[in-house]
Amino acid sequence: MSEIDIPESHPRYESLLTRHRIEAGVEKGITSKQGLIAQGRGEAFDYLLGEETTPSAKRAERAAAAQLLLAEKPVLSVNGNVAALVPGEMVELADATDADIEVNLFNRTRKRMVAIADHLQEHGATEVKGLAADARIPGLDHERAKVDEDGIYAADVVLVPLEDGDRAQALAEMGTSEIVIDLNPRSRSTQHATVPIVDNIIRAIPNITEHARELADSGHEQLEQCLKEFDAADALDNAEQTIRQGDLS
């Protein structure tokens, strides 16, 4: 079954669509097989969130847009699942916030890195960082430590969707502000984020882009106020309570 074969009237349309995209990503060589497991784990959390963007997530997505617009050097980090699920949407967000895009993988091979970069360029990206890997994030002993010196290493704000918790922690220890998209409010990634977004990435990225376009003409003080009004601890607590009280009926 292809995306074209899935009728939008199907009650599991969005779920089937994301599963298809992850499967196609594996076949194309951009997503690892472990990504299939990660997608299933996230989907379980999304069930309990009602498969919709909660009010607290909406506030987080607006704060994320403000933080990206305030950044001097924002970077959007992309792994295999992100590339499979929202390649065009990531490019649109980069355009809306004047951010760089950088590929960063745990299961890193040159072939996968090039495949993801090519895939993003097929969806409109003009430049994709990550292949140089001429710097390392301190405190990490695996492939995610490899970053571009003029990319993630130099960034003041990094969007790290579907992230490994140890890199999120290491970036925080570098003093980098992080926007994390993760459906688990208790993950290390969300716990270390300046702006944690507990939402499905297929909803979150377009929402952040929409807010960024709305806020594009805002002054520095207005953006700072938008970020100041956001409380990360409250956002995580609200998400956890929603999940704990999730209704599967």
Rank of each mutant, 00 (worst) to 15 (best):
P206A: 12
A170K: 05
P87C: 08
V180T: 04
A38F: 11
D141V: 09
L159E: 00
L223K: 12
I208N: 06
D5M: 14
K111M: 14
H192R: 12
E240W: 15
S77M: 12
E102I: 07
V198S: 08
G165W: 02
E122Y: 10
S32N: 07
L248M: 13
T97D: 00
S218E: 15
T242L: 12
A172N: 04
L48D: 03
A65T: 11
D166K: 07
Q67L: 15
G124R: 05
E3R: 09
I243N: 04
D234K: 15
E127M: 13
E3K: 09
P74C: 08
D166F: 06
A117V: 09
V160E: 03
A212K: 04
A168N: 10
N81D: 05
H142M: 01
L159R: 00
I30D: 01
D134I: 11
V75R: 02
E72W: 06
A212V: 10
V160W: 01
G151R: 01
P11W: 13
E240G: 04
R59L: 15
T109H: 01
M174D: 02
E61L: 15
L68T: 05
I101V: 07
Q169H: 10
G29V: 04
E27D: 04
A57K: 05
R144T: 12
A135C: 10
L227Q: 06
E214T: 13
E8T: 15
E122G: 14
R186A: 14
V91I: 09
D217L: 12
K111E: 15
D237V: 10
Q39G: 03
V26S: 04
R213S: 07
E102A: 07
T54H: 07
D134E: 07
V160L: 14
G40D: 12
H10C: 03
D231G: 02
R59W: 03
G35K: 13
D199F: 10
A168K: 01
G80C: 13
Y153T: 01
H20N: 13
G42V: 08
S189F: 01
D134G: 05
G219C: 06
S189N: 05
P7E: 03
A193D: 03
S9F: 08
D237P: 00
R144M: 12
P185W: 11
M174A: 00
L16V: 07
P196W: 06
P196S: 05
F230K: 02
V157R: 00
A233P: 00
R62I: 08
G139N: 04
N104Q: 11
A125M: 09
S2W: 03
A239P: 06
A155Q: 02
S32E: 08
E27A: 14
H10E: 01
G165R: 04
V91R: 02
A63W: 09
V198N: 10
A133Y: 08
F106R: 12
E221R: 14
R186C: 06
A99K: 01
T242V: 13
A204V: 10
L120F: 12
E178I: 14
E122V: 10
I4M: 10
S249V: 02
V26C: 12
E92H: 07
G25F: 05
D5Y: 09
E214C: 05
P11Y: 09
S249N: 10
P11F: 11
I205A: 06
H10V: 06
G42N: 06
L49I: 04
E52N: 09
